[in-house]
Design a protein around this nucleic acid. Structure first.
Length: 467
DNA sequence: GTTATTTGACCAATC
DNA sequence: AGATTGGTCAAATAA
């Protein structure tokens, strides 16, 4: 009986526990398994889990980073990256069309880079941010984010940069884990604050599990809720309270400044350093973009910032390091990075430590992935076209809505058959705070895949692409 | 041995 | 008043 129950549980919770399959094949496989309800062999572990419902956790093992992160990051990354790429980047290069790979490493890389995002988040943290998202739309969310990003970040940088950045990131990542002791005690998140995960739950409205984090500072009442999609994208992030303390300064990771940057976070975004830069970024022109990016990453992220972050020294300055990354990765679209970062950052944060070890073991794989990451990069499409969640969007209008000082951008799915539309607008002063509203559903598959390597979603959803 | 994460269970709020 | 959902706590586990 128990066993059965356990099994159930395992099956039942697709979300949180991702497949523990050590091998991780393609995400698709996993999905398939889940769908079938019969876990793949790999999941033998799962079976075990069944036996032990409690400990079911997935082992991060080397295989993967925590599923969430890795996958998430991947998707996020890929998505964001794709998006970014298109918008910003020129066609350049895609290292590999396979988006899959991108995932973890990329993510982490991005995440590192993404620290920028952190900045935004800081702000956000102080405030409450809510992400709006249609529950259904994972894709939508993504798309939103991407779209937003695109919109937001028109700036285009050279793809090369992005690529490089990605590469660097990847490299960094590799190192990161090590370097990143990250987070050493607390795990810094992209925003530069340290968070402790105190709970996870699947919320009814959302498909994805929601993770609850508390700021590790003793006095700090700040909490945040993060929902991640299987893809790894962040569907929602909600911050509550304001930090009573300044952001913890990151231990400098010496090494190369650059490295410090991203690296650190191996995805976690823990780098304290990052936060700083993040903030800077935010402040800086790019900041917005980043924010947006973040948002984008987030699938929906609408933040409503109540108050500005009290401290943000970070914001103040920190960008430095990260920036490089930003240049790189996101130069084009800071978005990518940001988003990724965000994604990773949050979830990852906690995991960083573990990951370290894991990463090490996985490093090889990761590295490979990271390398591939660059592929993310690519895409360029007209400005109007945006790949967000794997779908392609065309901006057909922009307008300033009455209640919102910020312009609202309207997008349509480029697929002729598809009636899907969405509009995105900044919700508050916080660039990150966005509101994306989707209308309709996609009648078609995501085009992106073929087009872009992105695949983040696709990957997960799909066919396993394994590569 | 320590610390952090995961997860089930409990409590509170809302409908 | 009951049911449902969200949020938090605390034990167990793993690194």
């Amino acid at each position: 009986m128990e066993i059965k129950e356990a099994e159930r549980i395992a099956i039942a919770k697709p979300v949180p526990s991702r497949p523990t399959c050590s091998t991780f094949g393609p995400f698709s496989e996993l999905l398939a398994g889940a769908i079938n309800a019969s876990p793949p062999n790999v999941c033998s572990e799962a079976a075990v889990v069944a036996i032990k419902p409690k400990t079911v956790r997935f082992k991060p093992m080397a295989n993967r980073a925590p599923p969430d992160q890795a996958e998430l990051s991947r998707t996020a990354i890929s998505n964001s990256s794709d998006k970014v790429l298109k918008s910003d980047c020129k066609p350049t290069v895609v290292y590999k069309p396979l988006a899959k790979l991108v995932s973890k490493s990329t993510v982490s890389l991005l995440a590192n880079m993404g620290n920028f995002n952190t900045c935004h988040q800081h702000t956000q943290q102080s405030v409450e941010a809510r992400v709006q998202h249609p529950s259904q739309d994972k894709h939508n969310l993504r798309s939103q984010s991407s779209s937003n990003l695109n919109q937001i970040m028109p700036a285009v940088k050279e793809t090369d940069q992005t690529i490089e950045s990605s590469k660097m990131a990847s490299q960094n990542l590799e190192e990161d884990p090590k370097n990143i002791p990250a987070a050493a005690g607390d795990r810094p998140s992209y925003d530069g604050y340290n968070w402790r995960k105190y709970g996870q739950k699947q919320v009814k409205g959302s498909e994805y599990p929601r993770s609850y984090y508390k700021c590790t500072h003793p006095n700090c009442p700040v909490k945040k809720k993060v929902e991640r999609s299987f893809d790894g994208q962040i569907a929602e992030i909600v911050y509550k309270g304001e930090h009573n303390h300044p952001k913890p300064q990151p231990p400098k990771r010496s090494s190369s400044g650059t490295q410090g940057i991203g690296l650190v976070s191996d995805g976690t975004g823990q780098d304290t350093n990052n936060p700083g830069w993040n903030n800077h970024l935010n402040e800086s022109s790019e900041g917005r973009v980043e924010n947006q990016n973040e948002v984008g990453l987030l699938a929906h992220s609408t933040y409503q910032a109540k108050a500005p972050p009290p401290y943000d020294p970070i914001a103040t300055g920190a960008n430095t390091a990260g920036f490089r990354i930003s240049d790189n990765s996101c130069g084009l679209s800071g978005e990518c990075d940001n988003g990724r970062k965000l994604l990773e950052g949050e979830d990852d944060e906690p995991r960083n430590k573990r990951r370290k070890s894991e990463n090490q073991s996985n490093e090889a794989s990761v590295l490979d992935e990271s390398i591939q990451e660059p592929r993310i990069v690519v895409q360029n499409s007209t400005d109007s076209e945006i790949l967000s969640d794997g779908f392609r969007w065309r901006k057909y209008g922009q307008k300033v809505v009455k209640g919102n000082p910020y312009p609202r951008s309207y997008y349509r799915c480029t697929n002729l058959k598809c009636n899907m539309r969405k509009h995105v607008e900044q919700a508050s002063d916080d660039p990150r705070a966005y509101i994306t509203t989707y209308e309709g559903k996609h009648n078609h598959e995501m085009p992106l895949r073929s087009t872009n390597p992105v695949a983040s979603e696709p990957d997960s959803l799909a066919p396993a692409s394994k590569e």
